[in-house]
Nucleic acid binder design. Sequence first.
DNA 1: ATAGGGTTAG
Length: 576
Amino acid sequence: MPSKTEFAYNAMISGYLQNGLMDEAKRVFDKMPVKNIVSWNVILSGYLQNGLLDEAKRVFDEMPVKNVVSWTTILSGYIQNGLMDKAKRVFDEMPVKNVFSWTTILSGYVQNGLLDLAKRIFDEMPVKNIFSWNVILSGYMQNGLMDEARRIFDEMPNRDSVSWATMIGGYGQNGDNKEALRFFIEATRDWERLNTCAFAFVLSTCADIVAFELGKQIHGRVVKGGIEFKCNVGNALVSMYCSCGNIKEAYDVFKRIEDKDVISWNTIINGYARHGYGQEALQHFDSMKQTSIQPDEITMVGVLTACSHTGLVDKGTHYFYSMSQDHGIEPDIKHYNCLIDLLGRAGRLDEAQNLVKSMPFEPNGVTWTCLLSASRIHESTELGEKAAKMLLSLEPWNTSLYVLLSNLYAASGRWEDVKKMQLKMRGMGITKTKGSSWVKVLNKVHTFCVGDFTHPDSKSICAFLEELDLRMISISAHSWKSWIRGRKRTDMSPQQTFVLHDVEEEELLHTLKYHCERLVVAYGIMKIPSGRPVCVFKNLCGDRTLTKIAGRLIILRDVGRFHHFEGGVYNCGSYW
DNA sequence: ATAGGGTTAG
């Protein structure tokens, strides 16, 4: 019974290949007494998946018989290895094509961003199935053509979970988070429409819009579905919790992910780094090195960010200069920017500027933003002006820069320049954007502008604010805590958080700014039940005085990172 | 045995 033997051998080869054991697979293949077409196709696929293109080509040429599967396998292999020209030639030469072959070449064009060619193939295809429809759908989404994608989605003869996930992910990646959420909710009407990717995508949207409540609810569904340990879902959860300021929950999820991949590690390392937990970030980097997962350039961004945010200048510098040797990762502009930020924050402004001059890349917007921020921390008008001007030349639409420059001139008494800047702004029709802060209460966003009392609950907010004012002036953390306790009757969990994010413009009077922050904080405390975090957002540097308002953990979110205060102690010490 | 969606940093 030779066919049965071949079947067993073929299964063995497949098994080895699935576990990445190419050599074992080859050994079995070579010793097979009789090979059938499946054996040849399987080993061909193995070579291609391992990037052994010359070997694959040899096998393909040596095959005693080729069928449409053999041709499609090598076609797909070329595409996966980035050889689109070769793939095209194979596709044209194939004696017989089936729907797999057509879909493969279609996918090749989509993957290479050649949407017009993909469209042509899609129209020419003699037979289409749901795979083909999903590929073209994804093609439109990848090119930002959301309306076209929507038309395809409506037109397709039927839709499966991949179609739904493509829509959710596509809208999210193109910045239409509202539509992404709408599609996710629509998908939840039928369990069949959901898969792990749908959850990963929607969680990514939650991270993007900092939808903590919704994210938590979705986490609940994920647990119910038993997929929280899945890598892609787990990674998205970790990222969502990090973005929402909840690093502890993020770590809880991270711990439980099965088969952590490089993204899992990157997410937690970068999460710790953004939250100012430099030591934890570096510890996880060390743990990562104990695994078989190789750090990549994003890992190094996290490591350098960790050093930068915690003032580990020497350590950061060392990581930067040895990353090529230690991990085979050549520093790119991202890493240079991290190092510039590191030096800048540490007040080593000259070194930072020299690095900008000597690095092998053109400085980009991030570079100048780092220098700008360094100039603010260390009060260097000269550097600030230069950085702001450079940034303005790259981002002329960035209206806040005009305001910033004008303030900078004002601060050093250069009234002529202030006037010029103001004229320029007027000429360009730039009006000062009004500072605002917002708070989410059960996923509803409440926005407050400075001195704006149009919110329906304004009256009670003001009353509460007065009470808050009395309590906030120079009171100790302890008395504040007991006051809150009294007010809430129930005990507050120590994990309760404020996430504060500065939305105001720097030039606003401090009192006004403070006032505005208080409006949201007050509203948040009033409306958000105890046991839930109060998330308040602002977009510039946060105000340290806010530490006073709590005898519990405060998380302050400013431009790109989080500051943790626990019992009045800042987790980065005196290093802002 | 051959085809689709995949989460991270900025």
